[in-house]
Simulated assay, not measured.
Amino acid sequence: MKDWHSVLVSPNTSLNEAIATLDKGALRIVLVVDKQNKLLGTLTDGDVRRALMAKASLDKPVAEVMCDQPQVARSEWTRDRILSVMERSELLQLPVVDENGCLVGLETLHGLLERNTINNPVFLMAGGFGTRLRPLTYECPKPMLKVGEKPILELILESFVASGFHRFFISTHYLPDQIRDYFGDGQRWGVSIQYVHEDEPLGTGGALGLLPKSELDLPIVMMNGDLLTTLDYRSLLDFHDQNPSVATMCVREFEYQVPYGVVQCKGDFVEGMTEKPIQKYFINAGIYVVSPELAASVKEHQRVDMPTLLENAMARGDKVTMFPVHEYWLDVGRMNDFQRAQDEYAGEVS
């Protein structure tokens, strides 16, 4: 997003001052907010022209001439969704607000269309057996099961491509030819795809040891091939870059309600009771950013799961950070999850 802080004004700002801010900010928009940063309205070139044509006084508060019901984007929207809204409504700017209506950013059409290519490699883990989805996976690898009209793995690939990624590695094991034949070298999507094959299952982290070490020059975004999410991968990489660590683990908040009343006690005495309390935990979301150094530490054909790899790194004194995922996220691991994906995912990405 562009730096939008320079175009913030209060509702009592004069139209004359707002025009000066509009010219200086060079974003062709002024954002009118209250003291809590709640978006009250916007002022664009068109609003100014209409006010001047109506012979409005330049001393008039901007609140009297602003658009007080501007179109906005929500902070959890994907880049594609924001771009679609802007193109459909012929907008050059779109304020971004949180669930409380507070301003958190500003997207511009120019900025969205000119985002740079991301050179970080993406490693998609697609070798699992999908035993919990049998009989669907007897003759089809789980990442190739279709949600709507496309395989899960294609939806994942396209979400990364839309964000600017172009270097992909895919690990295979179970029915690998179906994956290789479908995706090929990635030319159909305008990207590069290379494959590594696990002769024997190596765990969720072991396939890192099969990657060509000479090509691991940047942090690697690593993701299970059975996940559907609208996660902002750019924000994930930005977070990792701003918080130096050997790895960043994406986490998801999970709630569990105890179905009984929980008793607090001390010795033989009851000190309190809580009826059906809700416990909250962060769970592993199956998406990581892994430093080249950590990836290179995994030996070829070494069997290791990602949690173990990260625990060993922390035991050595290395830092591992976590990145909470608030966007849509679904692990398509069981039959009811697969059905949920059919019902939900298309609506989430539209």
Rank of each mutant, 00 (worst) to 15 (best):
M1T: 05
V7G: 10
S14Q: 06
A18C: 11
T21K: 08
G25Y: 10
L31A: 08
V32K: 12
V33S: 00
K38V: 00
T42V: 00
L43K: 05
L43W: 07
T44R: 06
K55W: 13
D59C: 02
K60W: 08
R74N: 12
V85C: 02
S89N: 14
E90F: 15
L92K: 14
L94H: 06
C102E: 05
V104F: 13
L112R: 07
L136E: 04
T137K: 01
E139R: 10
K142N: 12
G148E: 04
A162E: 07
S163D: 15
F165W: 10
F165S: 02
S171A: 00
T172Y: 10
F183W: 03
V191A: 09
E198D: 09
D199G: 02
D199Y: 11
P201G: 02
G205P: 07
G205R: 03
L208E: 02
L211Q: 09
L227M: 06
L228K: 01
L228I: 05
T229L: 03
V246G: 08
V251H: 09
P259H: 05
G261Q: 15
V263W: 01
K266L: 15
G267Y: 06
G286L: 01
A295E: 14
D318P: 08
D318Y: 11
P324G: 10
V325Y: 13
D331M: 05
V332T: 05
M335W: 06
N336Q: 15
D337Q: 08
V349G: 04
